[in-house]
Design a protein around this nucleic acid. Sequence first.
DNA 1: CGTTCGATGCACT
DNA 2: GTGCATCGAACGT
Length: 203
Amino acid sequence: MILPADFYRRQTLDVARDLIGKVLVYKTRHGTAAGAIVEVEAYIGEDDPACHAAAGPTTRNAPLYGPPGRAYVYLNYGLHDMMNAVTEEEGRPAAVLIRALEPLEGLPLMRRRRSRAPWRKGKAPVADHELCRGPGNLCRAMGITLEDNMRSLTRGPLTIHDRGIAPGVIVWSKRIGIRVGTEHQWRATVAGHRSVSAKVIGA
DNA sequence: CGTTCGATGCACT
DNA sequence: GTGCATCGAACGT
């Protein structure tokens, strides 16, 4: 079952928690790739200094101010696409960053896409549990790019499903890779999962 | 083990 | 011109 818009139209921390164990699916002409979400981070409102909406509305962060249930994809460090699911209400900028998946379908396709990265030319293929470990790696493996920005997650080729997967033990810790707003424990991970992107800090 | 650092593009000031 | 919600290789201990 595809998660409906009302799933996203809730408190961002609740959406983040409930996204663990759900399945991200992307169908392209090259095939279908899918993975279970095992790591997310919440970015909530203009008062959250790490949220892209911290400085108010801009061209780039416009999706955050839009309706819930859409994708917010942006390019970071000039190299890596990052995918978020927009939450809460229109006009309240908030989203959940998808940071890692356990690969379920389309693993050969994921391997091919990962191998295509310039810095991976001539290197050994990526291990299965590393295919979607990290927000940049996940987007590359799934084929998610800036072209998918603003896309609806409730219909079309890019969707998130409830397949009844047990989420496992969820651990909250500090968000990583940011320089401000590190005080909030807004990162949810599946305890001990091999595909989680970095060591869990502070619990 | 640990830390440092270059690659790379674009929104924002 | 500056600074990233990163990745992975190259070093040092």
